[in-house]
Deep mutational scan, measured.
Amino acid sequence: MPVRRGHVAPQNTFLDTIIRKFEGQSRKFIIANARVENCAVIYCNDGFCELCGYSRAEVMQRPCTCDFLHGPRTQRRAAAQIAQALLGAEERKVEIAFYRKDGSCFLCLVDVVPVKNEDGAVIMFILNFEVVMEKDMVGSPAHDTNHRGPPTSWLAPGRAKTFRLKLPALLALTARESSVRSGGAGGAGAPGAVVVDVDLTPAAPSSESLALDEVTAMDNHVAGLGPAEERRALVGPGSPPRSAPGQLPSPRAHSLNPDASGSSCSLARTRSRESCASVRRASSADDIEAMRAGVLPPPPRHASTGAMHPLRSGLLNSTSDSDLVRYRTISKIPQITLNFVDLKGDPFLASPTSDREIIAPKIKERTHNVTEKVTQVLSLGADVLPEYKLQAPRIHRWTILHYSPFKAVWDWLILLLVIYTAVFTPYSAAFLLKETEEGPPATECGYACQPLAVVDLIVDIMFIVDILINFRTTYVNANEEVVSHPGRIAVHYFKGWFLIDMVAAIPFDLLI
């Protein structure tokens, strides 16, 4: 008679799926529990143990900040960024110097990925580790590398530091407007667009060049630039800015003055950032001319202004700041037409079709709590990747769950009947059967004279019903998954307890 339990259901295979997918890609990662103190490590794979030199037993239950890997060259700011990422709910990448158990130093890129439950609360953290440099290539500990984003994938490793954006290309926007319009339909740009040429040739750093990471940081200074100062900065030398009595002219307006920039070969870094931020506020060169004239017309309804409409929906549905990093990277690809469009465009503009998908598509409701890094690593669709929660398995109709209350009560009843059979069957065979043979035949009273025979008949009927119930009862397979398919249940029961239950259900007393 089957006594099969499996009270692990309803099970959740999400954690096993993450481990299996990460292991298949030869990654070095740990999984931490966000619900406990210090976000203790609950799993670390073999790749991480080989990377740091510690065994799994030495890593388990330690804080996922990996303070046991810190050393003299470990930056405090990087460690603080990892700790801050564990307090938030967004994906974050941090470069930090770690030390192995043998004392060797290596520069590592740590990717902190939160995993949320159905309520939107962070319950786990996945920390992925990628070695960037070994100890002989690690720089000085005073050099802070965590304020910069990861290198873009479309640049060669040897040319990542030679990417320079020439400031004269930004200063000569109005001069290039006529050349853009003359391109017409034969050019790649839309009317009114501004073409910015980027020099990728390796050259020595000069005062006129600005690194790509500095251009990325310009967006942080746009908020500090007032509207009046932006307007004066875009007017140009024809209309000098008016300053109040006793007030000095704005240095932001002076930063885009061609006369002032041409007199000296070098520009201050602050002026460069502010000038680029001011130019980015204009949607095209037409807006710059309109600002000089004193009238700013409404933005025209053409394809170039609607190019950012799908980007707005993608940004609203993005799951991490990696989408913004990807957008900034692609927006700086050289030799393309940049349409400086305000994100607050007309909502009635139709979304044009684009061959290049900048932001990841909208994630469906079932995966809105899973970050983009987890979705990318697992390579699963929205119909396959579940949320991290207890999910009731989908069972067929008329199927009994093996952990249901009805099955528990039924098993206790069958257990009592088995005990009765084990006690009274030998007793009936030894004593009652002998008395029946010696006594007179009682054929007239039937079952009324033999109450134990009636009980034995009921017990046999219950055993037959138990066999039928076992054909529709779920079970737990070797992978700790609840199986509810009727065919698989029948095959599993035939290979197991079916023969024993059938022999126990045969009414031998009635056959004798």
Rank of each mutant, 00 (worst) to 15 (best):
L343C: 14
Q81N: 14
L69Q: 01
P298D: 11
S313T: 14
H147I: 01
T329H: 14
C39V: 07
L107N: 15
A223Y: 03
S104D: 08
P299S: 09
D323F: 03
R181A: 14
G246K: 04
A307L: 12
H143P: 14
R252P: 05
P386Y: 03
G184F: 11
R281A: 15
C64K: 01
M124A: 12
G246R: 14
N128I: 09
V195L: 05
I359H: 11
D197I: 01
A350F: 10
D259R: 06
E91L: 13
L200N: 05
K344L: 09
D119R: 06
G24F: 09
K101Q: 01
S318Y: 10
L316Q: 14
A121V: 09
N38A: 14
G120I: 03
D67C: 05
V195H: 04
P386E: 04
R326A: 13
P241L: 12
V194K: 01
Q247R: 06
F340H: 14
A32V: 03
R62K: 10
G6K: 07
P114T: 01
T74P: 01
Q75M: 05
T152V: 12
Q81G: 11
L165E: 13
M60D: 01
F14I: 06
G183F: 06
E23R: 01
K135H: 13
C108A: 11
S351Y: 04
E118L: 13
A307V: 11
H309Y: 14
T353I: 14
S206K: 14
R76A: 14
L212D: 14
L155M: 06
I336A: 15
P347W: 03
I96A: 05
S322Q: 14
V138A: 15
A211W: 01
L338S: 14
A307S: 14
A253K: 15
V384I: 07
A83I: 07
L385G: 05
G88L: 14
D197N: 08
Y54H: 01
T375H: 05
D286V: 12
E23N: 06
V377C: 06
L165S: 14
P227K: 11
P141S: 06
N117Y: 15
T371I: 13
A203P: 15
Q75W: 01
N220D: 07
D355M: 14
E50M: 03
P202L: 01
D46F: 02
K364H: 15
G262P: 08
A282Y: 15
R62Q: 13
